[in-house]
Design a protein around this nucleic acid. Structure first.
Lengths: 112, 112
DNA sequence: GCAACACTTCTACGGCTTGTAGAAAGTTGC
DNA sequence: GCAACTTTCTACAAGCCGTAGAAGTGTTGC
């Protein structure tokens, strides 16, 4: 449900990496591709509709910010994936079996 | 890349839950929806093209089996999601912070 | 061998998503 | 009020997915 297209992801990445909300123009300039501003506005509107972006309509130009942090959003994605199976733990067990030793160590540390 | 539509997922679920490879007809019968066999064949062909299903062309009717187990496939999905961020561990930390205590315990056990 | 049947391939279409952007409408500073 | 800037509306093409008919190929009982 909250999966992203390529351009959508590029835009989200800019918003995630920015301290402040950005205008469509700023997003446009910071993108690698050379796109029309209307294209960026369309994408921002779609992201807003998906609930991923918050728009400040008070200021002119409007400013856009990510609703959730990159990490929050990605955890949601993980849970979405895990929600497709009947046995989360079976998947997590296999996942953990597949990670590097250093990452496993990090996980142990996090789990206290 | 390996994301699934709704019908595709239903079909994969049948293949995952079955001990033996299934024919298109068997899949068709076991599906809840009442679909034409050609529909199921189309979906199976698409899943084969995506590399998710293996088709035994030797036997007639052809038999279809999942290439990877449900768990293997889901772990792939998890890694795909984690591949979209620059800092896997940051996401995993937050993920772990969000799981239930009993699941956290299970994770500790798995990590040894 | 051939007729009837079973199975597969080919082709197609409609709906949805995504990238893309022009035309038109709205806003604002002067 | 006008020029410059910004936003909205509308649209289109490509791709994915659900859906399935028509046509082709293989199989089997006689």
């Amino acid at each position: 449900m909250a999966s992203l297209g390529e351009l959508e992801r590029s835009v989200m990445t800019l918003l995630w990496d920015s301290e402040h909300p950005l205008s469509a123009n700023e997003v446009c300039e910071q993108l690698d591709e050379d796109l029309a501003v209307t294209t960026v506005l369309t994408v921002l509107a779609r992201l807003e509709k998906k609930g991923m972006v918050l728009r400040e309509r008070s200021s002119r130009p409007h400013r856009y910010a990510a609703v959730a942090s990159r990490e929050e959003h990605t955890v949601e994605m993980l849970n979405e994936v895990l929600g497709t199976v009947p046995d989360r733990e079976a998947v997590l067990a296999r996942f953990i079996g597949s990670v590097s030793e250093s990452e496993a160590a990090a996980l142990r540390r996090i789990l206290g």
